[in-house]
């Protein structure tokens, strides 16, 4: 209530000042405003040119054929097939990474905001999550390789005849991808939980509910939008990630299932995603099919934009106005 009243007051004070703004502002303020405008417009220009460039290039090369055919080895661009497998790979890896990151991330966020004791452990966990945000993904990928190459992890990894563990599979890449998505899930969930006023929790306690049912029946449903936002942002991170794919998923463009158990064999095998497909086919990689790389990059961009629109919709609709 107090903060609400304060907000209203500042708004009231601001309004009349805004009307006569031009006459009142000092030189320094006006220069600052100019710089803010220029940087803002510059950012818009860069963002739009990337999108438009990729759209123009991508649309001109995209067709039903590249979307529905598998990548093939070939010397000429016309022989290299499409990027059906990388699209499937992107979906599989995103689902796997999110499926691991979402429950763990929500759990961490709940523990941090609702329990958080001992405080030293909570700070340690917080620092760990922050470290994941800042860690270069290639470092995480190498770390993953280290773990999944051990013979202990053989059931989850692509293995060569004779028992050499490659440390590469959808499992390996998905596990490390979950670390990349994790901080976003934790962040989104924590933000939502923190926005719930203390007295709402107390109202539930005052009705004779314990902390567990309060979390399950009140706090989590109220945080749904925040959790969804965090998870979607995490998914966007996974979709856009390249280093982890190149290191941990293998460089085979086609899905290469491993083992005899259906479905599981795909996850144990190697493959590619749109990002690694773009990398490999662009002039930076082998460069055999640059036009298809553009088309794939365009598809990638569309997916990420769609996810961002989703995030906006979720946050817009899911906001509760607490008393």
């Amino acid at each position: 209530m107090i903060s609400g009243a304060g907000k209203k007051r500042t708004r009231r004070v601001r309004k009349p000042r805004k009307k006569g703004a031009k006459g009142v502002w000092s030189i320094g303020d006006r220069i600052g405003l100019g710089i803010a405008w220029i940087t803002g417009i510059f950012l818009c220009v860069v963002a739009f040119s990337v999108t438009i460039y990729l759209a123009v290039k991508g649309i001109s090369y995209i067709n039903l054929d590249v979307l529905t055919s598998r990548p093939e080895a070939g010397v000429e661009q016309s022989e290299t097939g499409g990027f059906l497998d990388p699209m499937i790979g992107t979906v599989l890896l995103t689902v796997l990474g999110t499926a691991i990151a979402a429950p763990i991330g929500v759990g961490i966020a709940i523990w941090l905001t609702e329990y958080g004791r001992p405080a030293s452990l909570a700070r340690f966990v917080e620092a760990g999550v922050e470290m994941l945000v800042g860690a270069p993904s290639i470092a995480l990928a190498i770390f993953g390789l280290l773990i999944f190459q051990t013979s202990f992890m053989a059931p989850f990894s692509f293995t060569a005849e004779g028992g050499a563990v490659f440390g590469r599979s959808f499992f390996a890449a998905g596990a490390i991808m979950s670390l990349i998505a994790l901080p976003f899930v934790v962040g989104g969930t924590r933000e939502a939980l923190n926005s719930i006023p203390k007295h709402v929790r107390e109202a539930s306690f005052a009705l004779g509910k314990d902390q567990a049912s309060t979390i399950r029946r009140v706090l989590l449903p109220a945080s749904r939008a925040g959790i969804a936002t965090g998870t979607t942002l995490g998914m966007a991170q996974i979709i856009g990630e390249t280093a982890v794919v190149v290191v941990l998923l293998g460089a085979s463009l086609q899905l290469a299932p491993e083992g005899a158990i259906p479905v599981l064999d795909i996850f144990k095998g190697t493959g590619s995603t749109l990002t690694s497909y773009v990398y490999i086919n662009s002039p930076a990689g082998e460069g055999k099919a640059p036009e298809k790389a553009y088309a794939a990059a365009f598809v990638l961009l569309l997916i990420v934009i769609a996810l961002n629109v989703m995030v906006n919709q979720i946050t817009k609709r899911g906001q509760h106005k607490w008393g």
Binding site: H199, S204, A206, L207, G208, K209, R217, V218, H320, G323
Partner: peptide, 26 residues
Amino acid sequence: LRKKVGMLFQQPNPFPMTIFDNVAYG
């Protein structure tokens, strides 16, 4: 104890669920 001793707070704080579910919550 808290089932026998109910409490109402300064701020109205219904839970983000339906009216029915709010009343049935306890």
